[in-house]
Design a protein around this nucleic acid. Sequence first.
DNA 1: TTAGACGTTTACGTTAACGTAAACCTTGCT
DNA 2: AGCAAGGTTTACGTTAACGTAAACGTCTAA
Lengths: 130, 130
Amino acid sequence: MTKATYSISELANEFGVSNRTIRYYEEKGLVQPRRVGQKRIYSAADRVRIKLILRGKRIGMTLKESVEIIDLYDPEHNNEEQLHSLINSVRDKRRRLLQQQQDINDMLRGLDEVESLCQQALSSQHLSRS
Amino acid sequence: MTKATYSISELANEFGVSNRTIRYYEEKGLVQPRRVGQKRIYSAADRVRIKLILRGKRIGMTLKESVEIIDLYDPEHNNEEQLHSLINSVRDKRRRLLQQQQDINDMLRGLDEVESLCQQALSSQHLSRS
DNA sequence: TTAGACGTTTACGTTAACGTAAACCTTGCT
DNA sequence: AGCAAGGTTTACGTTAACGTAAACGTCTAA
């Protein structure tokens, strides 16, 4: 059962960030939790937004970029022109992500190579010792 | 035929960054070009280092992290202990990269979904018009 | 020989994304 | 009543990764 509401510390702990970080996201308009008294109460939707923002961060997006992507999902887009421009921006994002995929694959191959060289070096050391 | 040396502007233009950026990388010890008079002369190896640094940047690594990865390639690692710690750090990097791959794939799927919704919206508009 | 293109150093300015500290509520134990 | 655990606001501090401006050298084509 997925909880309906969360305190700030619950989310901070879940995602491994500080409370300050989450408040900062609110300062920047990335989330708008309800208030009860003066305490912030986060909904499941708020939680997802934060999660997506942090996913963006992991792959090197700025907060603004993450929000741009998240906002692609909400249907404020009615007329044909808006839809076309939305499609274009989707394609832009996709291009960058594909480039990143390429970069990551290149790096992974590099790491594979390094590791296998290490293994070789280790095994040859062991051989010369016996 | 791959050039042997490059001026700072040549590299800056090739990679789409400013001269200042490249000098900054030198300030931070990421490259050490030769000097002729007081002008900087970059070797093919310098060029590759810069390229790798920028690749790291694209996927959200700090300069320090990029250098860490680049330095995995050079063979300063002799004894068994160093080799093992090197292997461990390779595995750490790999873990992060795999997570990033996952994140990017998730985002790409999201974008696919958004685009196809747009297409549907557009085609239904066109239908209702005819 | 002088203007323009390219390079240099020095140094202060800027932005994003928080960290950190102080001073203050509120709530539930004990 | 008192206090510890959570929350709050306000506001200044910090770091990375450059941008930008000033003031200067050097070479070369007109």
